[in-house]
Structures are given as structure tokens and as C-alpha cells.
Design a protein around this nucleic acid. Structure first.
Length: 589
RNA sequence: CGGGGCGUUGCCUAGUGGCUAAGGCGCUUGCUUUGGGAGCAAGAAAUCGGAGGUUCGAGUCCUCUCGCCCCGACCA
């Protein structure tokens, strides 16, 4: 490609709003342009990178038996009503009516659609297992798009769906994805880890997220350095140590100006572990067949030194959504904000008690009266509720597997895999007959990768102060040919020679100064740069530099150019391949 | 959805009630230059996000509204 003809141009300055460096470079280098909040166009350079990444994904999906399909973005709402997600998913899914008033949705994922297809195609165990995948546009009306391509509303997703006769089969396909995903990220040269995760709106039980660790990430990952336990904080567990002592009588105590646990512990001169705190949330519960919504007050109780993990709370409550409860809603249920506890609360309140509290004695808790607390509250004696795990794991807590102190880090979710089970096949009647003629629900899995987000993460990982340095597997071109000579005939010839040899070349044929050309080459960051200048050409040579290693200059004879470039490309590709490694995966997945 | 910030030419900015809205980059034309964002000269390009209001006079003040960004809520 001749640079004089490239549709996009480069920008000298970072446009306003580009906070993260990688995003700023993707815009400056002309890979992407923003149309609206969380809505981007891919320009030729950006699309070439995306196509490279998609190529890797396709390759790895085919290797594990995936067959590519393409499902529609617009779905009739009927199938979403069948699974209940038409009602349970909030405004993140956009809905509209067609010309005759039928409910339609913009599918934000395709379990419903693919299950609808599968219930037609699959009727016998002989037609299982199956694996289909697609690369398709998703629209998710995210309330908070941010950081360029990291979190957008419209994006391309690779989603695959597996169908098996039983959980053994599902486990196989899940494991195949587990490895394939690592191979995909490795081939893109993006460092990644897999963490245990919440299944969220997908349903099902077992799920993993793939994370690119980055300080700009929005997810918190809890890790044990000793045994290798990793999990999203949303579900991470930890050891809650407790001692038991004889129960003491309940006692009301005047505790002025003690609305927080810190103030209370200081006022009473007790450790925070001897207190219990309450979090009041209003939960929305949706009937998945009628779509009827019910609101219910939820009280979460956790030991004073811990915090409540809202995701765990929502799961424990089996609520579709949570929001902080208003003061009047709390009071209406017989409790007092700031001095609240479930002691004496209304019957219809859902009380969820963390095991840290359920297994402790004589905790100080709110007396549901301003400026008063109870001393010596005991779960079971003074109040009841469901015992659950709703506490948030933080660095320093002990690993629930090996009791080693946990650490935490920030990550960006680049992919996820879910064992769906029969959640969709049962609600949509996707059945097969086994050898004995017994009808059984197909066992499903669902697996996603955000393609644009992957590129965004690569831009975060690979850049310096001059621009991008994308790895050769994801860079839009392999070679950037910078011509500084007046004689265009020679440059054209070198360009043609490289292209004819099957090398992807971006040829800077513009009538610009050397400085401009070099600056743009650095910005776009094609891995290999070849400079045609009078200095070297006098000796029949050209200069070659690697973007990642700008200090090392190679002088290459013109007649060896194609051969040498092929070798360097192969070396760069091999370096990525050599850094891949097989990860140990046990049966615990 | 709550809190905060910002909308001035293609991009980045200046402009705190007063003359024809200023500069840098980019763009066009000409000449010069050609190994790290060149020089000189001449140009084009802005209904100052939109609507309403206050005022003799509004980019500037007020109200409403739209958009974008950040923090939070949220989120596969």
C-alpha cells in the first residue's frame, strides 16, 4: 500500500478525551475514529490489524472443531421471552418494534438464536457433539463506555457455542476452549491469565475469564502466589478465621456519633472484628415466565472488618438487580440506617448473613435506633437469616485453598468461557434422543472474545513514547518502506519486489521530509522498517530497523533484501511462537 | 442514573461583556529545502454545539437542551 493513498491520516496531537496511551496512539496513527460514545469506526490500518487477530481466532477455533456461522444482529423478541432474558436483562439490551409492532431486540449475545437453530438441527445423539462460532457485531448499550476500544457499546465479538449430550462432553469442549484461548492470546503476543469468574447473566455454574493485567483494568483479580488460585473478586473466596466464646446477654448501649464501624470500634475500644455491619439493598426479582418485577429489601450482614461484595450478594439473593436502598425503605422495614441490624426487622426482608458473622459470637450491631447499638448480638439467638458468603476478598486475606496471603491486581477482561449446562436447552426445548430413545436436553457451553478490546489491549501493552509497536501477528503491515530518495523508480522497484515476494508493505512514497516520514513510521509502528536513502544506496544497500529495537541498524544488500526480510519476519513470528507455553490445567476446571 | 469537567476552523489551544474572534499544527498555491515532525511568501477555512433570555452590545452572563470525557453506580 502506498502511503500517499492511505485513507486515514496521522495526527500530531492527542485528541481531547484520549486518556489511555494506547487509545491515543490508535487514534493518532489512524487506526480508529470515534463516532459517538462507545462507537468507533475502524479505518484501513485498524481493520487490517483486526483482520489479523480474527484470522488467528478463526484458525484456533477451526483447530478445535469450530464451524463458522453468522447469526443475525436483530432477533425477534420471542426467543428471548422463552428464556426469560427479555425480562431479566435491563436496558443494556436495546429493543424496538418492527413495522407491525412485533417486539425485536438487538442481540447482545446469541444463546437464544443458536439454541433456536440447534433445536431444529439436532435431534439425535448421533449429531453431537457440535461447535459453532461467529465473528459478529454486538450492540450492548453499556451505561459507561470508556477508554477508547476497551469498553464500547458496539464491537465485534467472537462467540462460540458448544453442544454435547452430557457434561463429560461439555467439559471436553470447555477444556479445548480453555487452551485455544491461551493460544489465541499468545499468538497475538498478549499476556493473559485465566481466572475463575461469575457467570452473571449467562447462567450456568462454571466460568472463567481471561484477563490482561493492566492498571487501567476495571476488574479486580485475587491471586494466590503459592497455590495458583485466581478468581475475579466478584466470586473470590478466602478464609474467615473466627473464634467462639460463650454467648453473653444482649445489651443496648448508647453510642453517640457512631454511624460508621470505625467510629463505633473506637468509641467502644474494640476491634472491628467484634462488630457486624449491615448493607441495605433493594433487589429486583423478575419472574422469568411472566416478566413481572418484584422489589424486595435485602439486608447483607458482614463482620465489621470486611466489606460486602455486591456481586456475591446479588447471587446469594438470586436477584436480577440491586440498588442501594433509600432511607425511608429501610425505616419502613423497621431498621435504622447507620444503626441498622436485622434484629426486630420486618418479616418480608431477605436477610443474608455472611459466615464470618454467623460463626462469631457477641458482635456489636445496630440497635435500629439512632445513636444506639446492641452489644453481644448472636446469630441464631437474636436474629436469623440465610448463611452465605458475601464478603469481599482483598489482598492480605488468606487463600481458601492453601491459607497463603492473597494478592490483588487489576485486569481487563478479554475473553470468557461459560459452562451453560441445560439452562437454554431446557427453556427452549432443545432436545436430543439417546440410544435408548430417551429425550434429553442438549448440554451447552458459550465462549466469547472481544476482538476490538484485544487490539486495544495490545496497544496498551505495545507502545513507547513515539507510538505503537504492535507484534507482527497483529500489525497492519509487516514492513514499512520509507523512501528518502528522489529517484522514485528505485523505490517503486524495491516496493514491487517486496510485494511480489508476498510481503505486506506500507510504502511511504509521500513528498514529505524525512522527519515526517520517520515520525509517522514510529507512530504506526510497523515491526520492520526499511529506509531507502542515498547514504546506503551508494553501496547498494538499504537500512533495516526493528520498531521494537530502534538502536540496532542492519545494512542489507539490495539483492538480499527479499530473502533477508522473509527471514526476519519468520524470526519475529518464531519469537512469538517460542514464548507460547502449554499451561497446566487440572481436572478442577 | 448521581457527581465533576469540557464543547471556539480538520486537530490542539487563546480569548472573564466592547472595534473585523487570535495563534500553532494541518490544508491550498508558488519558490527554496530533502536522513528525525524544514524555510519564506500568499491564501482558504469558524453562524464560537443548539435554543431561548439578560444587555445599547454576548464566544464571554442566565435558563433550558444536545454531545463528549472523567469519577461512581453499572457491566460478560
Amino acid at each position: 500500500m502506498k502511503m500517499s493513498q492511505v485513507f486515514s491520516r496521522t495526527l500530531r496531537e492527542v485528541p481531547v478525551g484520549a486518556e489511555s496511551l494506547g487509545y491515543g496512539y490508535l487514534v493518532r496513527a489512524g487506526f480508529i475514529r470515534q463516532l459517538g460514545a462507545g462507537i468507533f469506526s475502524l479505518l484501513p490500518l485498524g481493520l487490517r490489524s483486526i483482520r489479523k487477530i480474527e484470522g488467528i481466532i478463526r484458525d484456533e477455533m477451526e483447530k478445535i472443531g469450530g464451524q463458522e456461522i453468522l447469526m443475525p444482529v436483530v432477533n425477534p423478541a420471542d426467543i428471548w421471552k422463552e428464556t426469560g432474558r427479555f425480562y431479566s436483562i435491563d436496558r443494556e439490551m436495546s429493543r424496538f418494534q418492527d413495522r407491525v409492532g412485533r417486539d425485536m431486540v438487538l442481540a447482545m449475545t446469541h444463546e437464544e438464536c443458536v439454541t433456536d437453530i440447534a433445536r431444529f438441527e439436532i435431534d439425535s445423539y448421533k449429531r453431537l457433539p457440535q461447535l459453532v462460532y461467529q465473528l459478529q457485531t454486538k450492540w450492548r448499550d453499556d451505561p459507561r463506555p470508556r477508554a477508547g476500544l476497551i469498553r464500547v457499546r458496539e464491537f465485534t465479538m467472537k462467540d462460540s457455542y458448544s453442544f454435547d449430550r452430557d457434561y463429560e462432553g461439555l467439559k471436553k469442549q470447555y477444556l479445548a476452549h480453555y487452551h485455544a484461548y491461551f493460544r489465541i492470546f499468545d499468538r497475538c503476543a498478549l499476556p493473559s491469565i485465566a481466572v475463575g469468574s461469575d457467570s452473571g447473566m449467562m447462567g450456568g455454574k462454571i466460568a472463567h475469564e481471561y484477563m490482561y493485567l493492566s492498571p487501567i483494568g476495571e476488574d479486580t483479580i485475587i491471586t494466590c502466589a503459592k497455590c495458583g488460585y485466581t478468581a475475579n473478586r466478584q466470586i473470590a473466596t478466602f478464609v474467615k478465621e473466627h473464634t467462639s466464646e460463650a454467648e453473653l446477654p444482649l445489651e443496648e448501649k448508647f453510642t453517640p456519633n457512631c454511624a460508621t464501624i470505625e467510629e463505633l470500634a473506637e468509641f467502644l475500644s474494640i476491634p472491628k472484628t467484634k462488630t457486624a455491619k449491615a448493607l441495605f439493598m433493594m433487589g429486583t426479582f423478575v419472574d422469568s415466565t411472566s416478566g413481572e418485577e418484584v422489589q424486595k429489601l435485602i439486608v447483607g450482614i458482614v463482620r465489621g472488618d470486611l466489606d460486602i461484595e455486591e456481586n456475591k450478594l446479588q447471587n446469594a439473593a438470586k436477584a436480577n438487580a440491586l440498588r442501594p436502598a433509600h432511607a425511608d425503605e429501610i425505616k419502613a422495614a423497621g431498621m435504622e440506617p447507620g444503626f441498622g441490624s436485622p434484629i426486630g426487622c420486618a418479616k418480608d426482608v431477605l436477610v443474608l448473613v455472611d459466615d464470618s458473622v454467623a460463626h462469631a459470637n457477641n458482635l456489636v450491631a445496630g440497635a435500629n435506633k439512632v445513636d444506639y447499638h446492641f452489644l453481644n448480638t448472636n446469630f441464631g439467638r437474636d436474629y436469623t437469616g440465610e448463611v452465605v458468603d458475601i464478603a469481599s476478598a482483598v489482598a492480605g486475606h488468606l487463600c481458601s485453598v492453601c491459607k497463603n496471603p492473597l494478592t490483588q491486581s487489576k485486569g481487563i477482561e478479554i475473553g470468557n468461557i461459560f459452562q451453560l449446562g441445560t439452562r437454554y436447552s431446557e427453556s427452549m426445548n432443545c432436545m436430543y434422543q439417546d440410544e435408548g430413545g430417551v429425550r434429553k436436553p442438549v448440554v451447552m457451553g458459550s465462549y466469547g472474545i472481544g476482538v476490538g478490546r484485544l487490539l486495544a489491549c495490545l496497544a496498551e501493552e505495545y507502545h513507547d513514547e513515539s507510538g505503537l509497536q504492535l507484534p507482527i501477528s497483529a500489525a497492519p503491515y509487516q514492513v514499512h518502506l520509507v523512501s528518502l530518495i528522489k529517484d522514485t523508480a528505485i523505490a517503486e522497484q524495491v516496493y514491487k519486489q517486496l510485494e511480489d515476494a508476498g510481503i505486506e508493505v506500507l510504502y511511504d512514497d509521500r513528498k514529505e521530509s524525512a522527519g515526517v516520514k520517520f515520525a509517522d513510521a514510529d507512530l504506526i509502528g510497523i515491526p520492520i522498517r526499511i529506509t531507502l536513502g542515498n547514504r546506503s544506496l551508494k553501496e547498494g544497500k538499504v537500512e533495516l530497523k526493528l520498531r521494537a529495537n530502534p538502536l540496532e541498524i542492519h545494512q542489507i544488500k539490495l539483492e538480499d533484501l527479499t530473502k533477508d526480510v522473509h527471514k526476519i519476519i519468520a524470526d519475529l513470528q518464531r519469537a512469538i511462537h517460542d514464548s507460547m507455553y502449554e499451561r497446566e490445567v487440572g481436572d478442577e476446571i
